[in-house]
Design a protein around this nucleic acid. Structure first.
Lengths: 107, 107
DNA sequence: CCTTTATATGAATAATTGTTCATATATTCA
DNA sequence: TGAATATATGAACAATTATTCATATAAAGG
């Protein structure tokens, strides 16, 4: 009894559900004070882990854990430079999303 | 290697801790599938609780709980119409923030 | 009033998550 | 190679949170 249209509609809903979940997952990453601080710090300039840690006064371990979250979700990228790892924003979208939120806050 | 500029920037960030927390709290609200669905539904048109519940196939209680979160954080508003409560987006920022996230997703 | 319908809310539970501590891995340099 | 430095990671713990179930409140109509 599953005609083509029903299947299409189901697919559409499924696709949308995945989209919503992806959207929620993205915002979840921004929904933590430490991660927002790291991202905002990186909007100013790229930094290595130690610098971020010192700059934001957060333990190295916590920074490292959160950087992994940020990298996994594609918001930051890293490059090795000798013993240190330099992190930077993955793309301009990150800046845009932060700005979007800021505008709502300071309204 | 903490020169004056670093210290200044650090102070600025520390003073803005409240801002970052506010920003994180805002994104936290978007960081849940149910709430994103509700918000997206409301971008189409205002709806009462029962309609949202049926439309998204979520229990009335869950919808009501999340609507409270959304209202407390200023993302939706409500008006009573007889026995029903009609919810709508509080302002255009909500739409903008969702669009911002969408753009990142579908890149 | 009493019943029905719509919505809100409180308590309990399960699941997720951020930090810390200890330790592992990786790179440089003596 | 061995020591020192930088970063990553795993386990454990505490805290937050989303849902469910039961029930309370609120409005409308008889």
């Amino acid at each position: 009894m599953q005609n083509e249209n029903v299947i299409k509609i189901k697919d559409a809903i499924l696709r949308n559900n995945e989209l919503f979940d992806a959207l929620a997952d993205l915002y979840k990453v921004f929904g933590d004070g430490t991660r927002v601080r790291i991202l905002c710090a990186l909007t100013q300039s790229e930094m290595n882990v130690g610098e971020i840690s010192a700059f934001l006064d957060i333990t190295q371990s916590a920074v490292s854990h959160q950087l992994r979250v940020l990298k996994t979700s594609g918001l930051v990228k890293s490059k090795r430079q000798g013993k240190t790892m330099i992190y930077s924003l993955a793309d301009e979208h990150v800046r845009t999303i932060i700005d979007c939120g800021m505008e709502h806050i300071v309204e």
